[in-house]
Structures are given as C-alpha cells and as structure tokens.
Design a protein around this nucleic acid. Structure first.
Lengths: 193, 193
DNA sequence: GTCTATAGTAGGATAGAC
DNA sequence: GTCTATCCTACTATAGAC
C-alpha cells in the first residue's frame, strides 16, 4: 500500500478516462469531476493536459524498451525470446492496462519532442521483434512465412491485450501466459504425430 | 471509375482524418480544408459531424454481420469457418482500411441509437466467433486452450490489420490470406513429424 | 454549392481570494 | 490545495447573400 501523491492520482484517473473516451474527448473539467475537485485545482499538480498524456505514454514505452533490450541481450534462442516478449506484454498489461489504451490510441497527440522520442522507441521495438523472428526463420526454429505477417500477427494480439484481459479476470495470469504462448507460437490446430 | 457524389467524398476524406487523429480531434474546419472548401459548405451535404461517423461505422459493422451470418450458416467444419472469417476481415480491410480505424477506436462516440445498434452487432459477432471455436474444440478440431484466449488472439490480429497492411502493400492479397490462415491457425513453429 | 458572418457553447489555462 | 471568476480561443452549426 504505497502512499500516492495527488499528481499520481490525477494521472491514474486520467488514464481511465482516456481509455474510455480517448485523450481528445476528455476535458479537464471531466477529469476534475472524477477527482472530486474543480478544473482549476488540477493545475496545482500538473502543468498541462499534454503533460498528463506524456507521463502516461512515455513511462510505458520505456518499460517496453527496457524489457525488450534485456530479452535481446539474453542467451536464448528465438522461440525462448518470443516467449519472454509475450510474458513482458502480459506483465505490463497486468500492471497498467488503462495506460496502454493511451499508448496504443493517443500517442499521435503527443507534442513534438515526446512524439519523436516515442516514435523512435516504437520503431526500434518493432525492428528488434522483427530481427528475432528473422533469426528464428534462418535457424529453422520458425516457419518461413512472410515475416511481417508473423510479426504483426503476434504484436497486434499483445498490444490489444489491455482491451479484453481486464474483463476476463477469471483467467489466471499463469494460464494466460501458458496458453497465449501456445496459441501464438504453436497455433490452435492440433499437431499431427 | 465510379462517379461519387459530394457526400461520399466527404465521408471518405473524414475517414482518413479520423484514422490519423481520431474523431474528437478532427474539426469540421480540418475536414473542409481537406476538401478544399469552407466548413459551412459541408452542411449542404451532411447533417452533422455525428452523421459522418455513424455512416462510416454502421456500414462496416453491417458488412461484418452479414459476412459472419453467411459463414455461420454454411455447411463447413470449424476450421473452414475460421478460414472464411480470416478472409472476410482481409477483404473488408482491403476495401476500406480507413473506416476500420473509426470502427475500432471511435465507436464510443456514436450517439444513443447507433451506439446501441453497433454494440449489439459487436457482441453478436464475438459470440458467433466464440461458438465456432467452442464447436471446434468439442469436435477435437481445435486444441482445448482457454476459449477466450483463442478468440481474442485471432480477433485482435484481424481487427488491427488495417493498421499495418496498407503500409506493407508489397504483400499480395492472396499470400496475405494464405499466410495469415497458417499463422493464426497452425502457429509459427514447425510441425514435428 | 459555396461563401461570409456569426450565434451559442465549451475548451485549456490563469489570477487571485481563502 | 481548492475555490470562483474569467480570459481567450476554438468548436459545431445556422442564416442568408451570391
């Protein structure tokens, strides 16, 4: 039970509202109402609406970047690396599902500097993902289907986990990891022996 | 080369802008500028901004509903039905990738009546998808992993096709269908014989 | 069918009292 | 740290001329 300051509470409330309606459709008056205060009072804790968005998105993007770097630098084969990536996405989703909505849908409303920083992290992340898949194909650990189709098929599912997982909370996190790894890597059709 | 009326051009332009920035962040002035006219002139062709959104989303949702009904009523096994669903999503994405952004991200900005109509179509669609997977598991055509994980893994990928496919247009539509079916159903790891 | 002008509302953000 | 009051800008939409 960590003691939060007011700024963190505002950002947490904002993430929930941004998830429901998107950054542009949420007003500072909406956010203030959710906090039980007036809009003007928000500005004692934050500089601008934009700062809230950046705070949500950049923190999450950096988590993914750090996680991916650890995986890339590990001594594992391509399949094991993909398994770690799946776990990374599940862990981040469990810790901050609301914020992931902004990262996925509202990153384009970031201003100049943060937008560039975010876009670079996103491109780098995808490229590292792509390299792992390419390496797996080269070593025959992975089928040689079109690389982009494999990468974006997996990435699309992982990126939108935040949309449905919180609603299906009867699913245990360990079962989620285990079945998600099976479904994404081995498919849903039984293996013929 | 079909002759379009002004209303259709407006809706097409709007879909592109909504895809780039989202419904709430696009103003009628932005849309007018993209059309090379003034904002007031738009209202000779459409009733409201809301009408544009509804026109984009409802048409697409009905396409999916009709397509799914045809598949459900066909005499095919579960795997074949899933293959037809994958093709349905690819076909709709190829015909209107821009509009799918609104369907995915801006449906919550629909007003009352259309919102209810849309939400019913979406829930029904997911339930039919789920039933097909459940039937496949019962008949041992599909592995018995958690149903929700299988359904949303496939659906997430299919729903976000619009985000990356237009950028990778070196991929032929037939290769996309073939490889997507393989990746989603059989996975990326080679079958052991 | 497009324009200018404008009504009416709502947005982000600040000033200054308590 | 929160309030009321308010600034300034921008939004959707309409009226009426051409």
């Amino acid at each position: 039970m960590k003691i939060e300051n007011r700024r963190d509470e505002i950002i947490k409330s904002a993430a929930i509202l941004f998830k429901e309606r998107g950054y542009s459709a949420v007003t500072m008056r909406d956010l203030a109402k959710a906090m039980g205060i007036k809009a003007a009072s928000l500005y004692n804790h934050i500089q601008s609406k934009q700062e809230i968005l950046a705070s949500i998105i950049i923190k999450l993007a950096e988590k993914f970047t750090t996680g991916m770097d650890t995986i890339v630098n590990s001594n594992k084969n391509a399949i094991e690396k993909l398994e770690r990536i799946i776990e990374l996405h599940i862990d981040v989703t469990l810790s901050n599902a609301d914020g992931l909505a902004s990262l996925n849908n509202d990153w384009m409303h970031l201003e100049e500097k943060n937008l560039q920083y975010f876009e670079k992290m996103r491109v780098d992340y995808e490229e590292k993902f792509r390299s792992i898949v390419r390496e797996g194909v080269a070593k025959k650990e992975i089928n040689s289907y079109n690389i982009e189709i494999m990468v974006f098929s997996m990435l699309s599912t992982l990126r939108t986990l935040y949309l449905w997982y919180p609603k299906k909370d009867e699913i245990d996190a360990e079962i989620l990891k285990r079945d998600m790894i099976s479904v994404l890597l081995k498919g849903i059709i039984p293996n013929k022996h």
